[in-house]
Computed example of a mutant assay.
Amino acid sequence: MAAPSSLLLAILLWVPAETLTCIGDSGKPVDWFVIYKLPKKCDDGSAVPDRSVLPNGLSYKYLDAKSKDWQDGVGTIREPKGALALTLAPLYQNNKSQIAFLLYNDQPPPLTGKTNGQSGHSKGVVLLDLDEGFWLVHSVPKFPPHTSNPAFSWPSNAQCYGQTLFCVTFPSSQFHDIGKQLSYIYPLVYDKDLKIIEDNLPELVAVAKGQRVQREPWKRSVNLISKAGATFQSFAKASNFKDDLYSGWVAEALGSDLQVQFWRRKTMPPSCSGQYHVSDVINIEFPGGPSYRSTKDHSKWAVASTSTKTWVCVSDLNRSYGGYLRGGGALCTQIRNLFNSFKSLVKMVQPCPHPVHPSS
């Protein structure tokens, strides 16, 4: 048997034994984390402001339950001792017989070719054993690499734009509902091995086989409880829902106006006619920098417009007319430090015209 690469060996030595959870930048298991990969100045002319210190498109900000605010990541996004490499390390071990996994991406790695355009506009990783696991929701094309690769790596195409990765640790019982949510989204699964859980979690097995919801209702929401007891609300819509995820459903369900960050190209105007308004984030600014326009950021997230609600969501879909016709979802929570940290990024929004709310 060939010796593992030095990168893989470094990862395996750093991962705590007998854990299948989100692993933080500290190298220890965490209930959840968010990685925000920062954009860089690109050769295509889509440059962020000169004052931004973005040397290589691999820098990131990090946040977890113990963080008060965004902090600099450990090295670059591909750092073997960073949260992302540590969390995904089990996928690239030689012996994967004791884990189950499902990798999905509407823009899969080159090994598997291109999507047919009918799948959900969603990207993520489900990794678990019989006791626990995690759901990683992200916005990165062609990621992560197929498990036949020798080690975790970051795709070269994902350096120019901002990206988010949201990992939550769940007990195995919660993956029944996670599987049901994915059946609405209809993700493009490009790598999988569910043998150890196929008798216990038929919902995930069905998703891996390409099955999806065939009849109304075309949307579903459910509360998910993390390993540490935090509450998350998952929203999932099928392509037949044919409405904007945010203004057509999530804002009303959460009872809150929303400010939505997404890749703003061919976008819809702010949604201002209903009880709850949805506006677009057009400028982002991290404490201490960088500051840039949302056209430089592929991440998809939303925050409540006021601090009384504290809702924050990491999601799959852009606010565009194309999003009407694709499956996708959002994972939302009212965790205070998560809300405060995302809310602090909103430098400018495209507002609704006056009056701010319709008269009652």
Rank of each mutant, 00 (worst) to 15 (best):
D280H: 12
K296R: 14
W311H: 12
R336N: 11
A304Y: 01
K296M: 13
D244Q: 08
R264F: 01
P351H: 00
I284P: 03
H298R: 11
Q275A: 12
K227C: 08
Q275W: 01
V346H: 03
K300V: 02
P358L: 08
T333V: 03
G255M: 06
V346D: 09
A304R: 09
N223V: 08
P269S: 03
F232E: 11
L345K: 00
S344V: 04
F342M: 11
F339G: 06
V356L: 14
E285S: 15
N283M: 13
L345E: 09
T333M: 04
H357S: 12
V281G: 10
S273K: 13
Q350Y: 02
R326Y: 01
E285T: 07
P353Y: 00
G289F: 01
S234L: 11
R326A: 02
A230P: 05
P351K: 01
G323N: 04
S256D: 05
K266P: 00
Q261P: 00
M268D: 13
S294D: 08
V314M: 13
G274H: 06
R293I: 03
S256P: 10
W301T: 05
A238W: 01
L254G: 04
A302E: 05
A230M: 09
A228R: 12
T308R: 13
L245Q: 09
A228T: 02
D244M: 05
Q350E: 15
L338P: 00
R336M: 12
P351N: 04
V303R: 14
V278H: 05
G274M: 06
S294F: 01
A304F: 02
N283H: 08
G229K: 06
A228D: 13
D243H: 07
G274S: 15
P269E: 02
S234R: 06
Q233G: 02
Q259D: 10
Y324K: 12
T267N: 12
G329S: 08
P270F: 02
S315Q: 10
V281I: 15
A330K: 11
V222L: 04
Q275K: 15
F262P: 08
P353M: 02
S307A: 14
R265N: 06
K309D: 14
S291Q: 11
S279F: 01
Y292S: 14
V346E: 09
P270Q: 04
M348H: 05
K242P: 00
V222M: 08
N283I: 02
Q275N: 11
K296D: 13
K347V: 03
V346M: 09
P355Q: 09
A253D: 14
L254K: 07
L317Y: 00
G327S: 09
N340M: 11
F286G: 08
P287R: 14
G229L: 04
F232T: 05
W311N: 12
T333W: 03
I284A: 08
C313W: 03
L338H: 00
A236M: 07
Y276P: 15
T308I: 02
I225E: 07
T308A: 10
K266E: 13
N240A: 15
V250L: 13
Q334R: 15
T306R: 14
K237D: 09
N337L: 06
A251M: 04
